[in-house]
Simulated assay, not measured.
Amino acid sequence: MQDGEIIIERRGIAGLVRLNRPRALNSLTLPMIRTIAEALHGFAGDDQVAAVVITGEGERGLCAGGDIRALHESARAGDGLAASFWREEFRLNHQIASYPKPYVALMDGITMGGGVGLSSHGRHRIVTERTRLAMPETGIGYVPDVGATWLLPQASGEAGTWLGLTGLDIGAADAIHAGLADVQIASSRLGEVIDVLSALPRGSASGDVDAVLQALSEPAGESRLSQNAAMIDRAFRFDTVEEILAALAGEEGDFAAETRRVMLTRSPTSLKLALTLLRAGRRSASLAECLGRELGACLQMLDNPDFFEGIRAAVIDKDRNPQWSPASVEAVGAATVERFLKPAEPPLEL
């Protein structure tokens, strides 16, 4: 099946889902989400399919996230599309996390935001030497979503907190260190991955897929997050953004200085809300609980000035100079954060 933005096919025992918006870095639209969900449902019930592989067309990446320009326009118009997008995207994330068959994500190139949701919840996550993974939401006046507040708190030490607050991109070794990916395979061999998986016998299970991926894998090299783990753990162990920034100011070295500099460019409201959601995710019992909490925050974003300003600066005017309101972390009061924690109505159905 091919509808332009998504290509669905079966090759041997593998069901293939190919994101096909390369000019837009395969950013997700609501019809794409619906097509993927329908395809996964169909493959799950197809006895001829033993594994599913998701990949992105083009040379630049798997998926850069949701189509934030469309979300911006929907929020401005108040037409409900943004709310529908988040609800159905989060249901898809949960569907992937609980998928009954081996789910293989090829995280080649840019894999950010919604792209992480399509991949890191899966059972088999492949990165390459070209992978650039990020949850960049605090830079556009938004917060990590797609179940990131479940995934990131499970990362080693405070690496997930660093990722969620800074929004900086990382490579393959860091993604594996943070528990968001499993193995590195050269980008030049991804076609071979699909060919070998497709040729597996019917009835193949997760262990058979693991064996294929391990045989094709290569060392991921050194992780910058691992190298700086002690500093990250010291600075990001606090439960307030003010304390984290103060701790970073007291650390030596370029990594800490750059981390602090970047955080000071992010939306102060997003930083405080993101940290609140990440800490809540750490205490949560399930992905479903985190997704429900994220949806409540997302729906409140439709009235958040920083959300509109961040997208304006990033993709509308592209001046990269957002004017946040409030402009400082200290000016963001508890009541401002609290209003984003209102439960979604109706609740997320999973």
Rank of each mutant, 00 (worst) to 15 (best):
D79F: 02
D79Q: 06
D79I: 02
A82E: 04
S84T: 11
S84W: 03
S84V: 11
F85N: 03
F85A: 00
R87V: 02
R87C: 02
E88V: 10
E89N: 15
E89V: 12
R91C: 13
R91L: 11
R91I: 12
L92M: 13
L92P: 10
N93L: 12
N93D: 14
H94F: 14
Q95C: 11
Q95I: 13
Q95R: 15
Q95A: 13
A97M: 08
A97W: 06
S98N: 13
S98R: 13
Y99C: 02
Y99L: 04
Y99W: 06
P100E: 11
P100C: 07
K101R: 12
P102R: 03
P102K: 07
Y103Q: 01
V104S: 11
V104I: 15
A105N: 07
L106I: 09
M107N: 04
D108Y: 09
D108P: 09
G109F: 10
G109R: 04
I110S: 11
G115T: 04
V116R: 05
V116G: 04
V116Q: 04
L118T: 01
S119W: 01
S119C: 12
S120Y: 02
H121F: 10
R123M: 10
R123N: 12
I126V: 13
I126F: 03
I126N: 02
I126K: 02
V127I: 03
V127Y: 01
T128D: 00
T128R: 00
E129V: 06
E129Q: 08
R130F: 11
R130V: 09
T131Y: 04
L133S: 02
L133M: 15
L133A: 09
A134T: 09
A134F: 10
P136I: 11
P136V: 08
E137S: 14
E137H: 14
E137K: 13
T138P: 08
T138V: 14
T138R: 12
T138Q: 09
T138D: 08
G139E: 12
G141L: 06
Y142G: 04
V143C: 11
P144Y: 09
P144N: 07
P144H: 08
D145S: 15
V146N: 15
V146S: 15
G147S: 12
A148R: 08
A148H: 10
A148I: 09
A148V: 11
T149M: 12
T149I: 13
W150D: 07
L151V: 03
L151N: 05
P153N: 01
P153Q: 00
Q154M: 15
A155F: 06
A155W: 03
S156Y: 06
G157M: 09
E158P: 06
A159W: 00
A159F: 01
A159N: 00
G160T: 08
G160R: 03
T161Q: 05
W162C: 11
W162R: 07
L163K: 03
G164V: 01
G164W: 03
T166D: 04
T166H: 04
G167N: 11
G167V: 14
D169L: 13
I170S: 04
I170A: 09
G171Y: 05
G171C: 08
D174L: 08
A175V: 05
I176H: 01
I176Q: 03
H177D: 10
H177P: 03
H177R: 12
A178P: 05
A178K: 01
A178R: 01
